[in-house]
Amino acid sequence: MTSENPTQSTATTRVKRGLADMLKGGVIMDVVTPAQARIAEDAGAVAVMALERVPADIRAQGGVARMSDPDLIDAIRAEVSIPVMAKARIGHFVEAQVLGALEVDFIDESEVLSPADYVNHINKWDFDVPFVCGATNLGEALRRITEGAAMIRSKGEAGTGDVSEATKHIRTIKSQIRALSALNEDELYVAAKDLQAPFDLVVEVARTGTLPVVLFTAGGVATPADAAMMMQLGADGVFVGSGIFKSGNPEARAAAVVKATAAFNDPAVIAQASRGLGEAMVGINVADLPAPHRLAERGW
């Protein structure tokens, strides 16, 4: 409808980053069926990620992981009124075109799927739909923003239920931002070189003390306390992948993670949200994963 009116501009940077702004303080949940999407919306998810397999199953089953079947994405979109995200492989711009044609609300160019290009990420400026990308450090985050990402999530290690990598990545990004803010202007040239990021963007981050886009955390969050810790470390919100639907009581756990994320500074509320949730996902210690199976190392 907007194309009829030249004074209305769609797909601007402000419009793309604006949707991410509206997700702040919220929990985005991986779902593989419309029934799971219903549970997620009822529990208070701000958005769902429509997938064929959660990362824990991708990890267990192995093989090449790709974009989901459009029928599955459509079925999940039909079930809920909250935004629906879907994943494309790193560098797979045609999967992204397909997701754009399906009108998903956000595309995740994700290391959880098998990369399609080991050199280039997707040129995200080419798309009307906003993108979220993973990052393990500030330089990686700024390179993704340079390519057009409208939202960043720290990567963590998806499908493990081990929050230690999520902690490492959000701490690294936040502490590198703080370090930039302490530099004087002369020193920012070398900082940009070291970060392998464009100088202007580095200056902007140094001046504002924050990324120009929303920063969520992902990869290993399994409990209300995990989610609240990510928020206290400075995340704007959390993605929970396998942690909810690989647990004993997804309905209760999903609602509890939402509550703890909103009240992340209130230990009494987090304590109450942590009660009686049944079994958490069993999980894998990241230290036990051989390096080739670590998803966070995909993307650069």
Binding site: M1, Q8, S9, R14, L19, M22, E103, D105
Partner: peptide, 28 residues
């Protein structure tokens, strides 16, 4: 009411009681 995020937009609007066009961002 406008559909998915691809239809989100920004524009300028006359706003009764404000003497200049207001910059407005519509997100879903």
């Amino acid at each position: 009411a406008f559909g998915s995020q691809a239809h989100s937009f920004e524009t300028e609007l006359a706003f009764a009681g404000i003497d200049h066009p207001v910059r407005a961002t519509f997100i879903r």
